[in-house]
């Protein structure tokens, strides 16, 4: 076989595989949306699930997922920013920094089920927070933190050196330079990364099975007292999220329309994650334009 023919065959194969990947994903998304979207209605999104009857919704689960995400971000962002700033601005090259970097890398590759087990043992049992949104948020923080650190560190490293030096040369402290000059420039990248990470957190289930729990108490959506056990805002109540719900009805769903509910819930989950993706891109671009405003 001569070189020209080999080249043509190889090129055709590679193009074929690339289109196959596009087709698979299109099929995957098409399947999820096609099967699920017909089941999505206002009623489905707001009503409570049914155990053995048909016609259950996913209202509390959707709320739990969003609330849990919010709690997780409230804990992760200050920690992740702090640790990322340390890695990018204060860490001196050497053994200590290398080991911290290794820690971040290992932490980010821990299987989420192991993080969930750790949460069960330490947060749920040892600290006594029980199956609760708060325990779930801490477990998700463990899962999300390394990502946040990496995002912050990389976006700070991307800030031009001259910007940092200009601020230092005016006699500003290092801390003020970081917070007032460098972070604003890094913000678009950090925001984009955080939203993408939030999408991952939103779909996470394995770390939550044994921390946030697999059931929700009957919630009273007119009760906004965060200390009341039936209030949706109480962070110390158990909470089944959307992702956990999908897993549960697939493995032990008794309702006759379990498959439809799983399809509808999957579609909602995927649509939400897609929204996170698109808004991350859009918001990142928007912030970038605002901060650099080159007009």
């Amino acid at each position: 076989m001569n070189a020209k023919t080999a080249d043509r065959i190889a090129t055709a194969t590679i193009i074929g595989v690339a289109s196959l990947i596009v087709l698979i994903l299109a099929g995957l998304l098409g399947f999820i949306l096609f099967r699920g979207v017909s089941h999505i209605s206002f009623d489905f999104l707001t009503s409570v699930p049914q155990t053995i009857k048909a016609g259950g919704g996913i209202g509390p689960q959707l709320f739990n997922s969003l609330f849990l995400l919010l709690l997780t971000l409230i804990i992760t962002i200050p920690l992740g920013l702090g640790a990322g700033i340390y890695m990018s601005e204060y860490a001196k090259p050497g053994r200590l920094t290398d080991s911290i970097r290794l820690v971040v890398e290992v932490l980010s590759s821990f299987p989420s089920i192991v993080v969930g087990l750790f949460g069960l043992l330490v947060i749920v049992n040892l600290f006594g927070f029980g199956f609760s949104l708060f325990s779930g948020a801490l477990a998700l923080t463990v899962f999300n933190l390394p990502l946040m650190v990496r995002i912050t560190e990389q976006s700070l490293k991307g800030v031009p050196r001259e910007q940092k030096e200009a601020s230092l040369a005016l006699g500003l402290s290092r801390w003020k330079t970081i917070t007032s000059v460098m972070l604003p420039i890094a913000t678009p990248t950090i925001v984009t990364g955080t939203i993408l990470a939030a999408g991952r957190v939103f779909g996470e289930a394995a770390a939550l099975l044994f921390t946030a729990g697999m059931s929700s108490p009957r919630l009273d959506f007119s009760n906004w007292n965060p200390l009341s056990p039936t209030s949706p805002l109480n962070p110390f109540r158990p909470a089944e999220t959307l992702a956990v719900h999908i897993w549960k009805i697939n493995s032990e769903g008794l309702a006759p329309d379990a498959a439809e509910i799983a399809a509808g819930a999957s579609a909602v989950l995927v649509i939400t994650v897609l929204l996170f993706n698109f808004s991350a891109r859009w918001f990142g671009r928007y912030l970038h334009r605002r901060f650099t405003a080159t007009k």
Binding site: L196, G199, R200, F202, G203, A205, W247, V273
Partner: peptide, 8 residues
């Protein structure tokens, strides 16, 4: 970005 339960 697709969650693992959806893959499942």
């Amino acid at each position: 970005g697709i969650p693992s339960v959806v893959f499942g």
